[in-house]
Amino acid sequence: MSSRERKQFLAGIGRDNPVFVQILGICSTLAVTNVLRNTVVMCIGLCFTLTLSNVTVSALRRWIPGRVRMMVEVLIIATYVIVVDILLKAYLPDISRELGPYVGLIITNCIVMGRAEAFALTNPPRLALVDGLAAGLGYSYVLLIIAVVRELMGSGTLWGIPVMGSWWTNWTILAMAPGAFFALAVFVWIVKACFLKPADAPVPGTGGKPS
């Protein structure tokens, strides 16, 4: 791994993190993080889609006409998402049923489009692969942390197994959509206050508006 690749990888995990720095992909952060199992499948699906769509867009970058580049990006992303959906339906039917429409919603995740538009269109495939993977992993660990907090406090379980005991009163609000806003806001606050110095916080925004 060259130093450029390492730098790009670390940026996706930390200083350029799609969730807590760029504040992208918020709708899926809010929707799937109330149960850990769904979150894990969503993260795997997103990493897969993001990495492959980044590589594909990057490989085709010399041929994609500028005027229709967004249509091409969406087409490529949608193809990978449908592939994930079909594979889940055929080989992991139980998980597919539990996730319902969430897998299809990866298409609308701004991170995928954002990375394709901001990075893959101007960089070679190898670097785009590292970038896609880093953004995917950066998204995943944030979601997993939020999901652990929400499932533990909202339902008293972890991966569906009761762990909190009978003394714990479930904070139902945390299992519902508003709970996700609270959990995410507290997380972003802690990370920004403790880990990100104001000087290295980059200007957010890569073209897409938060979804």
Binding site: M71, I82, A90
Partner: peptide
């Protein structure tokens, strides 16, 4: 031409996968 080409490739790939997994689904 590029749009038609890439659409055919994408739709073709998805269709093949769909048909091959239809029985399992």
């Amino acid at each position: 031409g590029f749009m038609i080409g890439i659409t055919i490739v994408c739709v073709g790939a998805v269709s093949v996968l769909h048909v091959t997994t239809l029985q399992r689904v």
